[in-house]
Amino acid sequence: MKFQHLPIGAHFEFEGRCYTKVGPLVAAEEGGGQRMIPRYAVLRGLNDVAAAAAPITVPQLEAAEVSAAFAEFEQLAGQMLHEATNADPARQAAVQAALTVAGQVFRNRLNIK
């Protein structure tokens, strides 16, 4: 487990020594003293508090929700770009074409039609 996944107060072992997490980057050693724990460190939890600190799961979004949100973004971005091009029809067409291509790249990346 990684240090950032532990709650404050969790007990763990690192490099053969026992520590308690006291801050986002710092742990207190059982015998006294403090130490910064590197992000790459792999730790062994020593109590139930550490075991309860499982990785956070992110809820899955439905394709329809993502598509609707992106369509709303495209509409608003299109309006802002239209206003920013100062009513120059050629420039507006070029910007709209670029926005359309960017939208298709986004949908293709997420496999959304």
Rank of each mutant, 00 (worst) to 15 (best):
Q4V: 00
H5A: 00
H5N: 05
L6E: 00
L6Q: 00
L6Y: 06
P7C: 00
P7N: 00
I8N: 00
G9F: 01
A10L: 02
A10C: 05
H11T: 07
E13A: 13
F14G: 00
E15W: 09
E15R: 15
C18R: 14
C18L: 07
Y19T: 04
Y19V: 09
T20S: 01
K21N: 05
K21D: 02
K21G: 02
V22W: 09
V22H: 10
G23W: 13
P24Q: 08
L25F: 15
V26P: 04
A27V: 14
A27T: 12
E29K: 13
E29S: 09
E29P: 15
E30M: 13
G31H: 07
G32S: 02
G32W: 14
Q34P: 10
Q34S: 07
M36N: 12
I37Q: 01
P38A: 02
R39S: 13
R39F: 11
R39M: 03
R39P: 11
A41G: 03
A41R: 07
V42T: 08
L43C: 06
L43N: 04
R44C: 06
G45T: 05
L46F: 09
N47C: 10
D48T: 10
D48R: 09
V49M: 03
A50W: 14
A50E: 03
A50Y: 11
A51G: 06
A53V: 11
A54H: 06
P55D: 09
T57S: 15
T57A: 14
P59T: 12
P59S: 08
L61M: 14
L61C: 12
A63R: 10
A63L: 12
A63E: 00
E65Y: 07
V66L: 12
V66Y: 08
V66T: 07
S67M: 01
A68V: 12
A69C: 03
A69P: 03
A71W: 04
A71V: 05
E72P: 08
E72R: 06
E74Y: 05
E74L: 10
L76R: 05
Q79F: 11
Q79S: 01
M80F: 08
L81K: 01
E83W: 15
E83H: 08
A84I: 06
T85K: 01
T85H: 03
T85V: 14
T85E: 04
T85W: 00
A87C: 09
D88G: 00
P89N: 01
A90E: 01
R91I: 08
A93F: 10
A93P: 08
A94S: 07
V95W: 14
V95F: 15
A97C: 12
L99K: 07
L99E: 05
L99M: 06
A102K: 09
G103P: 14
Q104T: 15
Q104I: 08
V105F: 11
F106K: 04
R107S: 06
N108G: 13
R109N: 06
